[in-house]
Design a protein around this nucleic acid. Structure first.
Lengths: 333, 333
DNA sequence: CTGTTAGCGCGTTCAA
DNA sequence: TTGAACGCGCTAACAG
């Protein structure tokens, strides 16, 4: 008994059940009114033959694949992993599949990957695209339906984003309330969208508090970057540090610890993102919790709205929540 | 000027270039010998019309989608994220796309998700499937070509796995060499394949060293589990701990630290996996580096071999490398 | 070397 | 209610 009969097609079922192809199709789609007896017979033979309609053939004739594509700049980045997870689960709940494309930070690949994956699916989610604004603007129309995550393509497509600006503002206010008057911001990738919104927050804070000084220090986005600027931070005379993200904060924490500096007694350090390990650092890290998985779910909701012709969602924003732990404390006297 | 002409089909190109469908098809596939002049004309009009063959239609007629599916138990798990990343990049390098399915640890969903995603793709990678051996064995034949990661379905399909057994053995030997004679193993999910291979290593070690005692303590797989067994570990009188994974080790590290225990002076702690943060714990964690991304690449290689009819790969094994940091040290006198 | 024809497997008109 | 015919867009025989 071969377990692989090539795979039953709708024709096989029709023949076995002694009905026409159309009838089988109708039954399998719960369509129209088919004689109950016939329907039952068809269902039985379909079950016996282990028949299930070919997704490919259906896609071709229906014009939809029940699949969407997600393009991320780097699958190694925890934030994108979480966005993917949130998106994947939300899409699955609506019966959609997810095709994943990792550009591995190859900006040049972004366009072709987006176009290519979009063609095999019903819609696309572009995560924090690295390409420049002009290219993005020219590309988006060809990608519709599409949703952009964490980057604003000015109305060319719905956006699901985290409000980095407000979150950093809250972090600054937190430190200001603790008496800190001289802070240093460890910048990430200069020119990136998320870094820009953080700089905006800094400007707002300086305007609101004339007695507050915030220096900016070029840094990076990972642990080693944070560790490498430790001396510069210490030399700056700042009592509080706003790290670009948690990784940078952890690197700094580690490096200043090696130099005998006590946190938060002598120096307050705040991170950004609230990655899973932020609560386990020494001391536990004060940070802003970016709800990446929710961002992914938002992106799906915006895409699904377009796919099902519902009321389109223009933009959803999530404000990261301030998570105060013990890496920040009163400014040293 | 509408930017969306519905989308050019091969028929449009044929008409504009005044040739037949077949000719266009041949040109687009670099196929056979076509008159250079004609070919050039076809290519030009194709470019003008922005034509690209429909992946769907090609898939239907060619019988292949250039896509493979990956089913993972939990996209939130760093190990599966890395496997996915390694797999995705390797597959992309060979011109394949990746469809992702996250069962979110719903064992009951595993089967249907596997079958469903398999039907829309050319092959499947099953990551550490949770279903029982019998179900797995009965399912695999219907999934071919398929590759299983980190679980051995006894020859029913190629396997890409990490050698947990050898890695844990090395960890034990490391502690033994440091003078430890009484250890405790913090078990993960009892009955799981990866836990079983660790227990094998323990048995081997006990046989090799009659003067060595290794207790087993039921634990879990996350940070909190590690923290919750701190007292039990301390009461056991063991001088060294083999945690199920790094998360557990970190939880334990944190909890024993709170109790004033110094690591490694009073207690040595070893993790497993070498997650990115293992090197940043206090003290940095000794662990076994599981090359998850490479596992993903191995899985792709095994799948690709089947897809391209090459010599099939039965099994590939990666032995996690011992990473000695400072959470382990000489046994206390 | 080129065009014509026949499907890939299915959904959906159109008559009956 | 049911069946026959057409077409989704493309590739691969088969003639010419």
């Amino acid at each position: 008994m071969a377990k692989t009969p090539g795979r039953a097609t709708i024709t096989d079922v029709a023949r076995h059940a002694e009905v026409s192809l159309s009838t089988v199709s109708r039954v399998m789609n719960g369509n129209a009114t088919v004689d109950p007896a016939l329907a039952e017979r068809v269902r039985r033979t379909a079950a016996e033959l282990g028949y299930a309609a070919s997704p490919l053939a259906r896609s071709l004739v229906l014009g939809r694949t029940q699949t969407v594509a997600v393009v991320v700049p780097d699958l190694a980045n925890p934030t994108f992993q979480d966005i993917l997870r949130g998106l994947s689960r939300a899409a699955a709940a609506d019966g959609y599949h997810v095709l994943i494309a990792d550009t591995a930070e190859q900006v040049a690949e972004e366009r072709v990957l987006a176009v290519d994956t979009r063609r095999r699916t019903d819609g696309l989610v572009l995560c924090a695209p690295r390409m420049d604004a002009a290219e993005l603007a020219s590309l988006l129309p060809d990608l519709a339906p599409v949703v952009v995550v964490n980057r604003a393509p000015q109305d060319a497509a719905p956006v699901a984003a985290a409000d980095y600006r407000t979150a950093l503002t809250e972090l600054v206010e937190h430190l200001y309330a603790l008496g800190h008057r001289r802070l240093v911001f460890l910048a990430g990738v200069v020119g990136s969208a998320s870094n820009a919104s953080r700089l905006e927050a800094l400007a707002v804070a300086r305007a609101a508090h004339p007695d507050l000084t915030i220096d900016e220090l070029a840094c990076g986005v990972d642990f080693d970057s944070g560790a490498s600027v430790a001396d510069a931070v210490l030399d700056s005379g700042a009592s509080g540090v706003l790290a670009f993200n948690d990784l940078v904060a952890m690197g700094l924490l580690s490096a200043v610890g090696d130099r005998g500096i006590r946190v938060p007694e002598q120096l307050s350090v705040a991170g950004f993102d609230d990655i899973p390990f932020a609560r386990y650092t020494t001391p536990p890290l004060t940070t802003a919790a970016v709800p990446a998985a929710e961002l992914g779910a938002d992106a799906w909701a915006a895409l699904h709205a377009q796919l099902s012709g519902g009321t389109p969602v223009a933009a959803t924003t999530r404000t990261p929540a301030l998570v105060i732990r013990t890496s920040t404390g009163p400014a040293p006297h």
